[in-house]
Design a protein around this nucleic acid. Structure first.
Lengths: 206, 206
DNA sequence: TGTGGAGTAGATCAACCGGTCTATATAGTC
DNA sequence: GACTATATAGACCGGTTGATCTACTCCACA
């Protein structure tokens, strides 16, 4: 838009697609993408090979950005693992309350891309694995007895927050989810102090 | 399938659509629905007014069935509210592990139906409200200090289980979710014992 | 100067979409 | 037996989809 060193068709297309596929879903028409990006039809097929390639690339870029945002959020919260993890949920509360929030892009993509061979699925899978690993590292530092399990639980809560925020925003999903996260983190505190006092802690493999 | 008093086109169409829209999403083509149901094209428009009407009706029927399943599960678990609620998550573990599990039908429908005025959205909204109410009633009986809030949390966990099971089934989502549910119920136990002995805790209204 | 790659504009394509139509067949009822 | 409801079969419609193709413009660089 601004007359600033013209970003080039590829960039414009990625920008437009990133926004449109989130707002309207990955089922947006190619024409709509081209028109929004002010890009010739041919450029799409030159740069991305087709709509599927563009969508996959958009998911890749989004995932990289979101992962970076996770890291930044945690970095800004200091060194204490507990504070770093809670900061994630505080940030989630802000995201979810934004007027343009429309749910989780990756979940929507997975549900909308019927073909299980679509390259987008691999991207979303890796994204989730990376976020889980991020959680797990903090939980391990926190001394949680089952960091891998708890990381999965945290991601489950994150997923639940996103879904609840998208489908019934009145229920304060972020607040409810944060409380659940607190419960997960509390197990680390209890286990750290009292060991296996609660008894349920089985094979603690990652 | 059995040659049993021919279910009629309307019923056949509903049956086929209920299965196909779950397996392939609500974006299935009309032709595919008609062919699977062995129903004439015209019958669809006679009975449901169009594809949207059929989808809405399928969602209504599914919601009624699923609500009934919730009630039956709880009824089969006896009278104890805690056992009744945990039975829901035990059943969820079975559902999620079935080979034909493909995520939450209602969430997928909400994400796929771009038009916010689509009649399907009202159905899914009511379904979620009904399930929440079901949870809330048990939590209130359990003496939970914030049954409405906790019910929202339980539904958040249910949503999280469904999403996690659909997107990363290796993470034992049902087990992880059940533990979270236990934590929510535990709050009732703690508050219930103290609250019942000392009198009511604030905000006890539904 | 001029050549070639990149981008644009847009016609065109086959396939498919949901929906309407006519014609025909079947079943139940007076 | 005739009438009417309902269902079937399938041609047909306009619109849209993603994709291919040609023709033209533009600009950097040799």
């Amino acid at each position: 838009m601004t007359t600033r060193s013209k970003p080039g068709p590829r960039q414009r297309l990625l920008d437009a697609a990133q926004e449109l596929t989130y707002r309207e879903g990955v089922a947006v028409g190619v024409d709509s993408l081209l028109k929004t990006a002010n890009v010739a039809r041919r450029s799409l097929y030159e740069h991305f090979g087709g709509k599927d390639g563009l969508i996959a690339e958009v998911l890749r870029r989004s995932a990289a950005e979101d992962e970076a945002a996770y890291r930044e959020t945690m970095a800004a919260a200091g060194d204490e693992p507990r504070a770093r993890l809670l900061a994630v949920f505080d940030r989630l509360a802000l995201i979810v309350d934004r007027a343009d929030f429309r749910g989780c892009r990756y979940l929507a993509a997975d549900l909308a891309l019927a073909d299980p061979e679509h390259p987008g699925h691999a991207v979303t899978r890796e994204y989730r694995a990376n976020v889980t690993a991020l959680f797990e590292a903090e939980l391990a530092r926190l001394g949680h007895p089952r960091p891998g399990h708890a990381a999965g639980q945290l991601l489950l809560v994150v997923d639940g927050i996103m879904v609840a925020a998208a489908t019934r925003p009145d229920s304060d999903p972020a607040g409810a989810g944060r409380e659940l996260a607190l419960g997960i983190l509390a197990q680390a505190g209890a286990a750290g102090a009292a060991g296996a006092a609660r008894g349920r802690i089985g094979g603690g493999a990652t």
